[in-house]
Measured scan of single mutants.
Amino acid sequence: MEVRTIKVFTTVDNINLHTQVVDMSMTYGQQFGPTYLDGADVTKIKPHNSHEGKTFYVLPNDDTLRVEAFEYYHTTDPSFLGRYMSALNHTKKWKYPQVNGLTSIKWADNNCYLATALLTLQQIELKFNPPALQDAYYRARAGEAANFCALILAYCNKTVGELGDVRETMSYLFQHANLDSCKRVLNVVCKTCGQQQTTLKGVEAVMYMGTLSYEQFKKGVQIPCTCGKQATKYLVQQESPFVMMSAPPAQYELKHGTFTCASEYTGNYQCGHYKHITSKETLYCIDGALLTKSSEYKGPITDVFYKENSYTTTIK
């Protein structure tokens, strides 16, 4: 009895394709271990004539594949690729409408935090270190965002349907971005203890939790000093293409032309909904596939993004 075979390709990165001759009487799992086709788990399936010449994702289970996976995804987590594939199996079914010149995501599976993050990423200057993220990001900007969303979920250790947080998501993504040249110098002034300067680099240099107003941050924000008295913390120097200011959701007025974009969060910790506000020729609110415009805006804002380049204080 002759062994019926077909020729397929296996890959971990969709760049390096490895030619395989597979036995049609055995499952993919018996031949390769966990195997995925377009995100779908085909591990328990036997090869079919229609699979001839198709590319299958496999887990990096030998040295060659491990090197290829690390170079593309910059992670050695053995569960990463499987999590990416199972997320992709959902995100490829989502709709990605162009809204006001940006790629958004039609609401499904509690994905409003991903839509808000995706919209924000198209408006701030950011370059990702893992080629996987950078490639998928370019495709997302062009309207094909399924891979990018699935990668975000995998890097953030999230599953489809789980509630997510924009600030946490951005923080994970910033860790995989090139923020080497970003720098922030802060000064804390206390009447009792004097003053202390701190220099922050990388992710810490672009994120701040405690106030939404970048102007206020430049002037000074009140913080408790270690001595128990009130101290003032203010920005001395900022070198970065953008800054992200966050605070627990509270009524906040966004003035046209003073910011790049913002995240609105309605609801409580267990259950809520994100919308995205962007400042173009007027203010726009993007909620999944829905767009509304207004000249002014007041609502429960939790993150505001500002364009920056270089700032030095005039406070002496």
Results as ranks from 00 to 15, higher is better:
residue 2 E to M: 09
residue 6 I to V: 13
residue 6 I to S: 07
residue 7 K to T: 12
residue 12 V to Q: 04
residue 12 V to D: 09
residue 20 Q to S: 13
residue 21 V to K: 13
residue 23 D to Q: 13
residue 25 S to T: 15
residue 29 G to M: 10
residue 43 T to F: 09
residue 45 I to D: 14
residue 52 E to A: 12
residue 57 Y to R: 05
residue 59 L to R: 06
residue 63 D to C: 08
residue 68 E to L: 07
residue 71 E to P: 08
residue 73 Y to D: 04
residue 73 Y to W: 04
residue 78 P to M: 09
residue 80 F to P: 03
residue 83 R to M: 07
residue 87 A to L: 04
residue 88 L to G: 02
residue 89 N to C: 14
residue 91 T to R: 04
residue 92 K to F: 05
residue 94 W to S: 06
residue 95 K to M: 09
residue 97 P to S: 10
residue 97 P to I: 11
residue 110 N to M: 08
residue 115 A to H: 09
residue 116 T to N: 01
residue 119 L to N: 04
residue 119 L to Q: 02
residue 124 I to H: 04
residue 124 I to K: 04
residue 130 P to W: 05
residue 131 P to R: 07
residue 132 A to N: 04
residue 134 Q to W: 02
residue 134 Q to A: 11
residue 135 D to Q: 11
residue 138 Y to Q: 14
residue 143 G to R: 02
residue 148 F to M: 14
residue 152 I to V: 08
residue 152 I to M: 14
residue 152 I to Y: 05
residue 156 C to W: 00
residue 157 N to F: 06
residue 158 K to I: 00
residue 161 G to Y: 04
residue 164 G to L: 01
residue 169 T to D: 08
residue 170 M to F: 06
residue 183 K to S: 08
residue 184 R to F: 02
residue 186 L to K: 04
residue 188 V to R: 10
residue 190 C to H: 01
residue 193 C to M: 05
residue 195 Q to E: 15
residue 204 E to H: 11
residue 205 A to D: 01
residue 208 Y to P: 00
residue 210 G to I: 02
residue 212 L to H: 04
residue 223 I to C: 14
residue 224 P to A: 12
residue 227 C to G: 01
residue 232 T to D: 03
residue 234 Y to T: 08
residue 234 Y to Q: 08
residue 234 Y to P: 02
residue 236 V to W: 10
residue 238 Q to G: 04
residue 239 E to F: 07
residue 239 E to M: 06
residue 241 P to M: 01
residue 241 P to E: 00
residue 243 V to H: 02
residue 248 P to V: 07
residue 253 E to N: 10
residue 255 K to G: 07
residue 255 K to E: 14
residue 256 H to Q: 13
residue 258 T to Q: 13
residue 263 S to A: 12
residue 265 Y to I: 04
residue 266 T to N: 07
residue 268 N to P: 08
residue 271 C to G: 15
residue 273 H to K: 00
residue 274 Y to W: 00
residue 275 K to V: 09
residue 279 S to D: 14
residue 280 K to V: 09
residue 284 Y to M: 07
residue 287 D to R: 01
residue 295 S to F: 07
residue 297 Y to P: 00
residue 300 P to C: 13
residue 305 F to Q: 00
residue 309 N to A: 14
residue 309 N to Q: 08
residue 310 S to W: 08
residue 315 I to N: 15
residue 315 I to M: 15
